[in-house]
């Protein structure tokens, strides 16, 4: 039996997020996540890699999923609402990501645009996947956020850079780096580079 249930073409990744579950995924799989996502982008990655860590009672990064996202947040009474929450470009976190995957045993990283060799290797070694959300699709993705469960570092990092705890349901992503050493980004880039060579030849001198 498959590790993850497939509904309408998308594998359902639900809590608890485990190594077995993410290792069952491969490049090109469409996935829907239900559970908690923690946002983290430039400032948080730098801060974590400097050796800092939020208090566990507030944010538990262990075995979690980090989402490269700086949402638009509005406060309605006591509650926060994410009114726009698409992914930001992941490659900026490449210098930090592998270490953070190892340190916290991250099970997935969500972002856009793909990541590099160090992250690909860390995914393979520690059992993590890189999940690509559709960049710019801030409304489709915000609709899948069912509640905002808290925020850490709002004053220190500012709203787009803070760690937001987002409870999501059927959050749509595509696996572009799996836990077996495969990267869609690497393949597409190599193939398009080959094609570009012949286009350049055609243009001529």
């Amino acid at each position: 039996m498959a590790v993850l249930e497939n509904v309408g073409g998308a594998f359902q990744l639900t809590e608890p997020f485990t190594e077995e579950k993410v290792r069952s995924l491969k490049v090109g799989d469409m996935v829907e996540i239900s559970g908690m996502l923690l946002t983290g982008r430039d400032a948080v990655h730098k801060w974590l890699s400097d050796g800092n860590e939020p208090p566990k009672a507030e944010v538990n990064l262990q075995n979690s999923i980090i989402y490269h996202c700086g949402p638009v947040m509005m406060k309605k009474g006591k509650n926060w609402i994410a009114t726009a929450a698409g992914p930001t470009t992941s490659i900026r976190e490449e210098p930090y990501q592998a270490k953070i995957i190892e340190r916290f045993g991250l099970k997935a990283v969500i972002g856009k645009g793909g990541m590099g060799e160090k992250t690909r290797e860390a995914c393979q070694k520690f059992g993590c996947v890189y999940l690509h959300a559709v960049g710019g699709a801030a409304q489709v993705l915000a609709e899948r956020i069912k509640s905002v469960e808290g925020v850490y570092g709002l004053d220190t990092f500012g709203s787009p850079e803070a760690i937001w705890k987002l409870k999501v349901e059927r959050f749509p992503v595509v696996v572009t780096i799996d836990a077996h050493g495969n990267s869609l980004h690497k393949v597409v880039e190599a193939e398009s580079a080959e094609k570009l060579k012949s286009v350049v030849e055609k243009i001529g001198k």
């Binding site: 996202c69 700086g70 009114t83 726009a84 930001t88 801030a138 409304q139 915000a142």
Partner: peptide, 15 residues
């Protein structure tokens, strides 16, 4: 996404 953003009058993209 284009349809939802227009209907809800919310940013197409959070950036």
């Amino acid at each position: 996404n284009v349809e939802i953003a227009k209907r809800k009058s919310q940013p197409l993209c959070q950036d």
